[in-house]
Design a protein around this nucleic acid. Structure first.
Lengths: 124, 124
DNA sequence: ATAAACTCTGGAGTGTACTCCAGGTCAAAT
DNA sequence: ATTTGACCTGGAGTACACTCCAGAGTTTAT
């Protein structure tokens, strides 16, 4: 499928898709005879995984490293696992952090809510 | 207290603290006669809140806007509350997202774990 | 067959949030 | 009194992750 189709499916931009390929975050995509990119389903799955990990804050550099290991074959599985475990732990910490911040926000919102209510009482 | 003390307490850098003041994310900090910053406890509390909101991904611009509203007095309370509520909702979505990504990571790690175990069985 | 729409490359530009000077002043210790 | 270390300002530089061209070729619809 052509790049515009991938744009629709992944909601990444064509520029981003080409950029990812350029920096080695995606493999060289197969081309038609005239040189136009022809994405396969497997490419889409990889793009989705990349998208997902990026949303989780995993730096592009780490993902490139990860796929370099994938290309090197099965003996890199422990190293790949290490990367994922590390990222999981980062994510876990982040999740805990965000939960606390969420609580703080709820508290602050509540404070404002009460101030507004008090003002309304003063008026009446 | 001087900036080095604030660095210790908040683990922000001196450059960042001065930068935050420059862009109006912190108020002008009081100075000694010779022009050296002399932070108060209230400044620390504000810095902590800023730090917290930054970790949650709230853009610096939004925080500046928020403190602009604080300076304008009580009639901006509903608007301030709106900002916090908006950020809370963003955070909630993000939290859900991250939870899903965490699950995906756990799954992937498990897959690798199983591959490693299978290999060990082959050997024995 | 020709206009309109899509795709290509390589390189430059953008936004966000710092981070790092240079060149100078100030404070504390010897 | 002078060395050492902390602090000051204004401005330039950096890192990351895109994002946006210009100029050229390709495909599709009329």
């Amino acid at each position: 499928m052509r790049i515009s189709e991938v744009v629709k499916r992944t909601s990444l931009t064509a520029d981003t898709l080409r950029y990812y390929e350029r920096i080695g975050l995606l493999p060289p995509i197969s081309r038609t005879d005239s040189g136009i990119r022809d994405y396969q389903d497997i490419d889409i799955r990889r793009i989705e995984f990349v998208k997902c990990m990026r949303r989780a804050g995993l730096p592009v550099e780490v993902l490139i490293e990860y796929y370099k290991l994938v290309r090197q074959g099965d003996e890199t599985i422990p190293e790949r696992k290490r990367i994922l475990v590390e990222q999981r732990d980062v994510l876990k910490d982040q999740l805990k952090d965000l939960q606390e911040i969420l609580n703080l926000l709820e508290y602050k919102i509540n404070v404002y809510e009460n101030i507004v209510l008090e003002k309304e009482n003063e008026i009446s």
